[in-house]
Amino acid sequence: MKRPDPAVLLLTPALLLTGVVFLAPFGLLVATGFWSQPKGSLIVERSFTLDNYVRIAADLYYWRGLGRTLGLSAATTILCLLIGFPVAQWLVRRARRTRALVTALILVPLVCGALLPTLGLVNILGTLGVLNGTLKALGLIDRSIPFLGNDSGILIGLVQSFLPLMILPLATVLDRLPVSLEEAAMSLGATRPKVWRRVILPLAAPGMLAGALLVFCAALTSFVTPQILGQGKVATFATIAYQQAALVLDWPFASALAVVMLALIGAAGLLVALGRRALLAAERAP
C-alpha cells in the first residue's frame, strides 16, 4: 500500500466538514423543493411535483416580496459603493498609522453578529429613538419620522451592516494601485475627475464588482435586519423563507423559496462575471 500523502491527511477533516456538512445539504435542498407537504399536515410527500414553484409564481405576494427584496438589495449595494469607495480610498491614501485601527473598528459590527447591532439600531431609529430625539432637539422636526416598520429603516440597517463587506475588498484592490499612476496621469494633464475616470475607476472596477456582489448577496439573504427593523410589517424574500421554514414548518415550500434565492444569487454572480468580461474587452479595445 502507498503511504498516504501528509498534505491529504491534513486537509481531509476540513474538506469533509465543508464538503459533507456544508455543500451536500444544498443538493438535498434542490430535491426537497420538488416534494410537497399538504396544508395543515407535517408529513412530507416524497414524490416529484412542481407545486411549490407554481405556488410562488402564481401568488402576487411573493412577486411583491421579490421585487422589494431586489430593490432593497440594489439600493443597499449602490449606497455601499458610494459611501464605501471614498472610505476605502481614504484607508489606502490618508489613514497612515491609523489604518489598522480603523480597519479593526470597521470589522467590529461584523463580528458582533446580525442581532446586537440591529438591537442598537432599533433604539436609534425608533419614534423615541436617538435620531428622532436629536432632530427634535435641533428643532428640525416636531413630529417623529417613522423609520421602523418600513423600507427606509431596513435600508439604513442593511447599509450599516454590510458597508464593511464593500470597504475591505475595495481597499485591497486600491492598495495595489501605486500612487505614481495617479501622479503620472496628472503630470500628463489629467485633472482630478479625469484621473478618477480614466485610471482609478477602470483599475478598481474588479474590486467594486467583487464588493458589490458580496453586499448584494448579503442584503438579498438577510432576514434578521428586515424582520426586526421592519417590525414584521415588511416581507422580503428571506423573511418569508424564514417564516415557512421555522414557523410554518412547510419545509418543501421553504426549500423551493431557498432555491429561488440561490438562483437569484447565481444570476447576480453571472451578471458580475459578464460585467468583468465586458470590462476586460473594453480595455483591450484600441
Binding site: F22, T221, W251
Partner: peptide, 14 residues
C-alpha cells in the same frame, strides 16, 4: 460566499 440562510433551511431538514 454561499448564503447561510439557504444552507440552514437544508440543514434543518437533515
Amino acid at each position: 460566499t454561499l448564503p447561510l440562510i439557504v444552507w440552514s433551511i437544508a440543514l434543518l431538514q437533515i
